[in-house]
């Protein structure tokens, strides 16, 4: 297959492509989340240790995964923007940040609502929770820094550097439950180890994670289209859309 990937690195050709993809990712997200909720609340059995409370896991774990995964992808795009100076990379990084911050907040919030009945505390200052809170501050810091600098190229450089340096926090979050003594339970799924939970619980969690993934792609593509229109508003191809009065 001879697809010219560089073609899609140009905002002018990525914009309509993203627009065509968005509805498909919405359909996938909706179907997967509905199936995941059905499995999680109807099919999956009650946990012998935690009772029904464990069902918070079906959003808590996928949200926590997304919060870390989105950060890594954002840092990679920020790095590409610094090295290759491609405009679309910065736009992708800035479009990813709000969704990453939202999932980080969801991971912390659902964690508190799970911690209260299980540990007796909404919050404890342990390694896993603290490093996830730092992740939220990194997202907020990245967005504020980008918004605070007027010159787009300088804004991209400064915030991109912050995103890349902050990436060291992600392995710290992930391995925190191994490196430090913590209240937080260990990884739900680890490589080379049989999962420690029922197959239906695992399926519900996995499908919810896929659903969140599709949601992320859909909403980030929508946001990057706004980002493209704003940044490229003086270019010929946007001006042409303006004169036609349709924006694809």
């Amino acid at each position: 297959m001879a697809i010219n990937w560089y073609k899609f690195a140009s905002p002018a050709s990525f914009y309509p492509l993203a627009g065509r993809l968005v509805p498909w990712f919405w359909i996938l997200a909706a179907v997967l989340i509905v199936i995941g909720l059905y499995l999680g609340f109807v099919v999956a059995p009650t946990d012998y240790k935690q009772g029904e409370a464990y069902r918070i896991m079906f959003i808590h774990v996928p949200a926590a995964w997304m919060s870390m995964f989105i950060y890594i992808v954002m840092a990679i795009y920020a790095g590409l923007a610094l090295v290759l100076k491609t405009r679309l990379s910065t736009m992708m990084a800035t479009a990813l940040a709000p969704t990453g911050a939202m999932f980080t907040f969801v991971a912390l919030w659902t964690g508190a609502f799970w911690g209260k009945p299980m540990w007796g505390a909404w919050w404890v200052w342990d390694a896993r929770l603290t490093s996830e809170l730092i992740l939220l501050f990194l997202y907020i810091g990245y967005m504020s820094l980008y918004a605070a600098i007027d010159d787009p190229r300088r804004a991209a450089r400064a915030s991109g550097l912050l995103a890349i340096v902050g990436a060291v926090n992600v392995p710290i979050i992930y391995f925190s439950v191994k490196w430090w003594n913590t209240l937080h339970q260990g990884a739900s799924i680890s490589f080379g180890q049989a999962p420690t939970m029922a197959a239906t619980m695992l399926a519900a969690m996995g499908i919810m994670a896929l659903g969140f993934w599709m949601y992320t792609i859909a909403v980030v593509l929508m946001r990057v289209r706004c980002e493209i229109l704003e940044r490229e508003r003086h270019s010929d191809w946007v001006q042409e859309m303006v004169s036609r009065g349709t924006y694809g």
Binding site: T46, A53, R55, T110, F113
Partner: peptide, 10 residues
């Protein structure tokens, strides 16, 4: 099972 507030709150 008594965890409604925590589950639905999440």
């Amino acid at each position: 099972g008594g965890y409604g507030f925590y589950i639905w709150g999440s």
